[in-house]
């Protein structure tokens, strides 16, 4: 039996560039598109909001079809979940996979939306995905084997049975090439979100220009006065270095002990 292509939805946000403040695609969402392509999935972009020009840039990274949910501003989570479950996105069948960046760039940037969408859909979510592949190449129920990125280059493998939500990490290597012609040829479809009501006013949270504050200085910077060995025998120097590294805990203890 041939493996059926996964049907993936990539959640897109209208991001801004952190330096210039101009509209720009978000790096993790570009990687989400690349991950969908790496999985051999048919991908549709889904944006809760009006069709804005920056969405065309995502199309240049390999999304032929982008759906914008008009009027989703009041409750984007409900709008996205409804659109995903409606079955109106793919003609062939239901959605197997929802891909998102781990954190948007330009809105509240809380990284909470993929979790809220997963909770609303009742699907499992795996965060910080660095790479993914299908664990069962053939079969109707897609099971994915996922590499989760962790600090200091560590990785954790997780298996999740579909349908599921994945949020993609910045270190994912699957960055697709940008094709200008694709960006021009992309179709931005608009669908009514079916949510009535106006966007909620930001309640309680006041907003102002970011003020850069110093971080706590780690107890590292020992001014001076480290131990100095002047012209030791090479063997003594090697022993001193090994003992020092062991005391710091960066060098594992010898195999015998």
């Amino acid at each position: 039996m041939m493996a059926t292509a996964l049907r993936a939805v990539v959640l897109l946000s209208a991001g801004i560039d952190p330096v210039s403040g101009r509209p720009a695609p978000v790096g993790t969402e570009i990687r989400a598109i690349g991950l969908a392509r790496a999985l051999g999935a048919r991908a549709i972009g889904l944006h809760a909001g009006l069709p804005v020009p920056v969405l065309r840039e995502y199309a240049g990274y390999g999304l032929a079809d982008i759906v914008c949910l008009d009027g989703a501003g009041a409750d984007p989570v409900t709008a996205l979940a409804r659109a995903i479950l409606s079955g109106g996105l793919f003609a062939e069948g239901p959605v197997d996979l929802v891909l998102a960046g781990r954190r948007a760039s330009g809105g509240a940037d809380s990284g909470l939306l993929p979790y809220a969408v997963a909770e609303r859909l009742g699907w499992p979510i795996v965060a910080d995905v660095a790479a993914a592949q299908r664990a069962t190449p053939a079969g109707p129920s897609p099971e994915l084997e996922i590499e989760q990125a962790r600090p200091r280059g560590a990785r954790r493998t997780a298996r999740v049975a579909g349908p599921c939500v994945l949020s993609v990490h910045e270190v994912a290597a699957c960055v697709p090439d940008f094709v200008f012609a694709q960006a021009r040829a992309a179709v931005l479809r608009t669908m009514p979100a079916g949510i009535d009501g106006s966007p909620p006013l930001a309640g309680g949270a006041e907003e102002r220009a970011y003020r850069r504050r110093p971080r706590l200085i780690a107890a590292a910077a020992q001014a001076s006065g480290g131990r100095v060995l002047v012209d030791p025998a090479p063997q003594d120097a090697a022993r001193a270095i090994i003992d020092h590294l062991r005391a710091l805990g960066v060098l594992p203890p010898p195999a015998g002990s």
């Binding site: 131990r227 030791p232 090479p234 120097a237 090697a238 090994i242 020092h244 010898p254």
Partner: peptide
Amino acid sequence: GLSVIADAQRVMPALRDALAAED
């Protein structure tokens, strides 16, 4: 925090041998 005032080309073989002896 620890400085060895010596030629690195002479310390490195000693370090390699010490690590090899431990293993």
